[in-house]
């Protein structure tokens, strides 16, 4: 059996979880295994209603007051108990921040592998092979879980599967898993989620964005890209390290922990193209990237790959634009 676990995102099935359902359907048909979907934790019964159209064999509800807010302690306990009871061959989730936070706990509790952040699946006979990015997306690797593993945990990178491909048709059965958990199991306490006041610039409406990465090397070079931005009539965005080092304010950050943008033109200088950056800009209509490293991963998604030194190109281009 294959078990997909749904994650709540403020009252709805998380977008990554929908992709996980598509992944689960694909694996279950390739491997000829039943598919179950587990609704647990925050808003479990709402998730169950939203999942009722998905084509699968068993829709499982595991609801409990003590997991009605997220905790790594509570979630890892409940999911471990479900796995012990049902012995699924694969457990599938989206590679969200919550999955990073609690799924390794399940791996260690049950002594089973967790292959995280998978980008694609191929098959070696009946045995799935999982690809994931390594070395900052410069390379990828094929991974197989050890054949002795009863269960393997999997998390998929966003867009590895498309939720457009979910097959509908409803579940053959609905079951309830009796959760047993007590207050000793949960050591942490958590406060409500909050959003930091998003003051600054709204990059989501920009038509052209010039985005600067660590390749700019020092704060002293920031004015150089600011001039280019101005000459292009663009907005300035950045990767995370530029914000971490205090060279630009955090509202300029693009990526999984910053803003998600889809301008007409995304013009990046000195950005390597790590997935956490790419998820925030891959919807851009046109992408031009300047990078001195011919193998920079950003070039995989760029329309125009400019291989060269930004320190030379940016000032010259600015000069030309100003003419």
């Amino acid at each position: 059996m294959i078990l997909v676990v749904l994650e709540n995102q403020r009252g709805n099935i998380h977008a990554f979880s929908k992709e996980a359902v598509a992944a689960g359907q694909s694996l279950s048909s390739k491997l000829g295994m039943d598919l179950s979907v587990l609704c647990m934790g925050e808003n479990a019964s709402t998730l169950k209603e939203q999942a009722s159209d998905y084509k699968l064999q068993n829709l499982i509800l595991a609801d409990h007051d003590m997991t009605s807010t997220y905790s790594a302690d509570g979630y890892s306990k409940v999911l471990s108990d479900v796995i012990k009871d049902l012995s699924p061959k694969y457990v599938i989730m989206g590679h969200s921040y919550m999955v990073r936070d609690f799924l390794p706990r399940v791996s260690a509790k049950l002594d089973i592998p967790f292959v995280s952040d998978i980008i694609s699946v191929t098959y070696d006979g009946d045995s799935p092979v999982f690809a994931r990015q390594v070395f900052n997306a410069k390379l990828a690797t094929n991974i197989q879980s050890d054949s002795s593993s009863k269960t393997t945990l999997l998390s998929f990178q966003s867009a590895a599967f498309s939720s457009d491909n979910i097959e509908l048709g409803g579940s053959d059965a609905t079951t309830v898993f009796e959760v047993s958990i007590n207050s000793d199991d949960i050591k942490s306490t958590s406060e409500p989620e909050f959003q930091e006041s998003a003051s600054g610039v709204d990059l989501t409406t920009a038509d052209v964005i010039v985005s600067v990465g660590r390749g700019i090397e020092s704060q002293d070079n920031i004015p150089m890209v600011e001039s280019l931005t101005e000459a292009m009539g663009a907005e300035l965005g950045s990767s995370r390290p530029v914000v971490d080092m205090g060279w630009l304010p955090s509202y300029r950050q693009i990526g999984s922990s910053g803003q998600a943008v889809s301008p007409n033109l995304y013009f990046s200088v000195g950005v390597s193209g790590a997935i956490q950056h790419v998820v925030g800009m891959k919807g851009s209509k046109n992408i031009i990237a300047i990078n001195k490293d011919e193998e920079a991963p950003i070039f995989e998604i760029a329309d125009y790959a400019v291989v060269g030194d930004l320190m030379e190109i940016v000032p010259k281009l600015t000069e030309e634009l100003k003419k």
Partner: peptide
């Protein structure tokens, strides 16, 4: 528990 089969260029 899990094994690298081979590295490749994306």
């Amino acid at each position: 528990k899990q094994n690298f089969l081979n590295l490749f260029i994306p």
